[in-house]
């Protein structure tokens, strides 16, 4: 059994690589740092499913929470608001404990 690389509470960094083919990591979250809220389990790879492949190997999918301020910087409406997205493990790396990725 492949174990998830991240656990709830982990800070994770979203990769900035270009989205080739079919990608479910939105542009506005790439390069941002968030916190894992939940491990959803393993799901088929949408990029492969999109081209009629079986979508294997599966990847762990995580619910990741981002502070609005860390995504939009000063344009954020309210410092307590967050945006949450479901992101695949192959788009995430572990962020250093204090790392924040404020919007420019």
């Amino acid at each position: 059994m492949i174990e998830p690389r991240f656990a709830p509470g982990d800070r994770v960094h979203v990769d900035t690589r270009p989205a080739e083919r079919h990608c479910r990591t939105p542009f506005y979250l790439r390069g941002r740092t968030g916190v894992v809220e939940a491990v959803h389990g393993r799901f088929r790879d949408p990029d492969r499913l999109a081209f009629h492949r079986p979508g294997l190997p599966k990847h762990y999918l995580y619910r990741v929470r981002f502070d609005q301020v860390s995504v939009w910087g000063e344009a954020a409406e309210n410092s307590a608001d967050v945006v949450v997205a479901d992101l695949f493990e192959h788009w995430l790396t572990k962020a250093s404990p204090g790392e924040t990725a404020h919007a420019k």
Binding site: R24, T25, H40, F43, P46, V83, V84, A85, D86, L87
Partner: peptide, 9 residues
């Protein structure tokens, strides 16, 4: 909390 339905949920 804005939930962006990006994947399988």
């Amino acid at each position: 909390r804005v939930l962006d339905s990006t994947a399988d949920l």
